[in-house]
C-alpha cells in the first residue's frame, strides 16, 4: 500500500505532471503495432484499456511498456483482425490469466461482497440513523410503560400546579424583555 504524506509541493508537481503522464500512457502503443483499419484499431484500444498488464499489474496493457503487454496488444489485434468479437478476445485472455486481468472486476458470486458490500453497509447505516431519529422523536415509546398505559401517556400527563407556575414564569420572562436580565445584573 502507498503511504500518502501531506506535501503540498510534491502534490503540486504531481498534478502538474499528470497531463504528461496521460500522454505517455497513450504512447505505449507504437505506430507499427496499429491496425490499418481505424475502427478495428479503436476497438483494440478499448479492449486493451480494460486488460491488466500481468507484469506491472497497475497498468493496462494499453499503457504498459512491458514486453508481455506489447505481445498481448498484438494478440488482441490479431484476433480482432481474424474476426473475433470484443467479447471473444477478452474471454480468451481471461481464459489464460483469469479474472485478475480484467481491470474492472466482473459481477459474479465471488465478487458480490466487493460490488454490494459497501451498499449494504450504507443501507444498514441509513436504517440505524432513521431508527435513532425516530426514537429521539418519541423517547418514551422505547422505554415501555410500567403501568401498562399506552407508551405516549408520559408525554401527555397533565402538568402539576407547581409545574404550571414554573412554565408561566418562564414564558412570562421570555415575552417581557424588561425582566429578562433582571437576575443577572451585577
Amino acid at each position: 500500500m502507498t503511504r500518502h504524506r501531506r506535501r503540498p509541493v510534491r502534490a503540486a508537481i504531481a498534478s502538474a505532471l499528470l497531463p504528461f503522464l496521460a500522454i505517455g500512457a497513450a504512447a505505449a502503443v507504437e505506430p507499427r503495432e496499429m491496425l490499418a483499419d481505424p475502427a478495428l484499431e479503436a476497438r483494440a484500444r478499448e479492449i486493451s484499456r480494460g486488460l491488466r498488464c500481468v507484469v506491472c499489474q497497475n497498468e493496462s496493457i494499453d499503457e504498459s511498456h512491458a514486453d508481455l503487454a506489447r505481445d498481448l496488444r498484438r494478440l488482441v489485434r490479431e484476433r480482432l483482425a481474424a474476426g473475433d468479437s470484443d467479447g471473444e478476445v477478452t474471454r480468451y485472455v481471461v481464459s489464460r490469466y483469469g479474472d485478475f486481468v480484467l481491470l474492472k472486476p466482473p459481477l459474479k458470486a465471488s465478487t458480490y461482497a466487493l460490488w454490494f458490500g459497501p451498499l449494504v453497509i450504507l443501507a444498514a447505516g441509513a436504517v440505524a440513523v432513521a431508527v435513532y431519529f425516530r426514537r429521539q422523536a418519541a423517547p418514551a415509546s422505547a422505554a415501555g410503560a410500567p403501568t401498562g398505559a399506552p407508551p405516549s401517556a408520559a408525554s401527555t400527563t397533565p402538568l402539576s400546579a407547581e409545574e404550571e407556575r414554573r412554565l408561566a414564569r418562564l414564558l412570562d420572562r421570555e415575552t417581557d424583555p424588561s425582566r429578562v436580565d433582571e437576575g443577572h445584573r451585577p
Binding site: 505481445d71 498481448l72 489464460r96
Partner: peptide, 13 residues
Amino acid sequence: PDSRAAIAFGVTG
C-alpha cells in the same frame, strides 16, 4: 519469440 505459447499457457514471467 513473441509470446504466442507463453500467453496461451498464461505465463506472467
